[in-house]
């Protein structure tokens, strides 16, 4: 196999070399140790940075700059008003519940797909990614019609007093749909890569299947499961399309934070929407750091094994 000649790890310690003194510009200083013969560094990096700044960085910074134009008391009044706080609580709890359901069933699905062969496995494997591919609005109306009192599933739930549509439970249903592939796709490769030898060793030392599972397999898969759970949770926090139809959008009861931002915008309350958005952005950036840390930890583990 070909070796990656330039690893990511090299970049941190990269320093300009003396033989590049003929070209002492910014590019030369950014550029690493090896001059190399490949062309297009300036063009590709220049385009990348310009496009990244124009599309992502400058627009995102607008949220924080706009928020900074509010006084601290104004900001606090917006982000801590009862309706907004109720939306945070709801958003966090339904996202946690949805991600927890995904963790349990995502693990099961990943396990079954990775370890067993059965008829229809390839279709099942492809189908796992449906929530990535299906537009969220379509998922939203489909789930709402399924769980409506006269829907395919709702007609069996309603007589038992289980109301899904227009309740927080409905939001959990939508979010667990959206987050499922994150858990399956995080866990599945790890289960596939588990060494047969450690399991055989455990068995030959007298462990039964359950002991092998709880003491050998589950600890090895747990970091990946946690990563998948966090990815599903992070996605759920910002989710909008699949939730609006099933939630009923009642303030204080079934109004998630992204929806609150939209309704503030519809009332032309741009500062209010922006302040809440900045709170959401900060919490999702923190989650992103957590996810990166988890994935770095996972890679470290993978090298040990």
């Amino acid at each position: 196999m070909t070796q990656p000649s330039i690893g990511v790890g090299n970049s941190v310690g990269a320093r300009p070399q003396k033989n590049q003194a003929k070209r002492p510009g910014l590019l030369a200083r950014l550029r690493g140790k090896r001059p190399g013969i490949l062309p297009g560094f300036g063009l590709s990096l220049g385009f990348t940075l310009t496009y990244l700044s124009l599309i992502v960085l400058i627009p995102l910074s607008a949220v924080f700059l706009k928020t900074a134009s509010l006084s601290a008391t104004q900001f606090w009044a917006i982000v801590s008003s009862p309706r907004v706080v109720a939306s945070y609580k709801l958003t966090y709890s339904v996202s946690l519940a949805g991600a927890a359901i995904d963790a349990v069933f995502g693990f099961l699905i990943a396990w079954v797909l990775a370890r067993y062969s059965f008829p229809g496995k390839r279709i099942a494997d492809a189908l796992v990614d449906l929530p990535f591919a299906l537009p969220t609005a379509v998922a939203g109306i489909a789930l709402t019609s399924l769980y409506a009192p006269n829907g395919w599933l709702g007609q069996y739930l309603e007589p038992h007093g289980i109301h899904v549509v227009f309740t927080p439970l409905g939001i959990v249903v939508a979010l667990s749909f959206i987050g499922l592939p994150f858990v399956v796709r995080s866990v599945q490769p790890v289960i596939e890569d588990l060494g047969r030898d450690v399991e055989e060793a455990a068995a030959s030392l007298g462990a039964n299947s359950w002991q092998t599972f709880t003491r050998i397999i589950f600890p090895a898969v747990f970091p990946a499961l946690l990563t998948g759970f966090t990815l599903a949770f992070a996605r759920a926090l910002g989710e909008y399309g699949s939730v609006v139809f099933i939630s009923g959008n009642m303030p204080m009861r079934t109004e998630i934070t992204p929806l609150l931002i939209v309704s503030k915008l519809q009332q032309f309350d741009v500062p209010g929407a922006t302040a809440i958005a900045s709170v959401m952005l900060v919490s999702s950036f923190v989650l992103l750091l957590v996810i990166n840390g988890l994935q770095a930890g996972l890679r470290g583990k993978g090298e040990d094994a």
């Binding site: 990269a14 910002g238 931002i261 992103l288």
Partner: peptide, 29 residues
């Protein structure tokens, strides 16, 4: 992938940034 330069890891993280942003906030900006 073809060159080494300072801040590469940061750049890779920044490229993924839009995935962490709620679609509603993406519209708001």
């Amino acid at each position: 992938s073809r060159f080494s330069f300072k801040g590469k890891n940061l750049l890779i993280s920044l490229i993924d940034l839009p995935l962490a942003v709620s679609p509603v906030v993406a519209g708001l900006i």
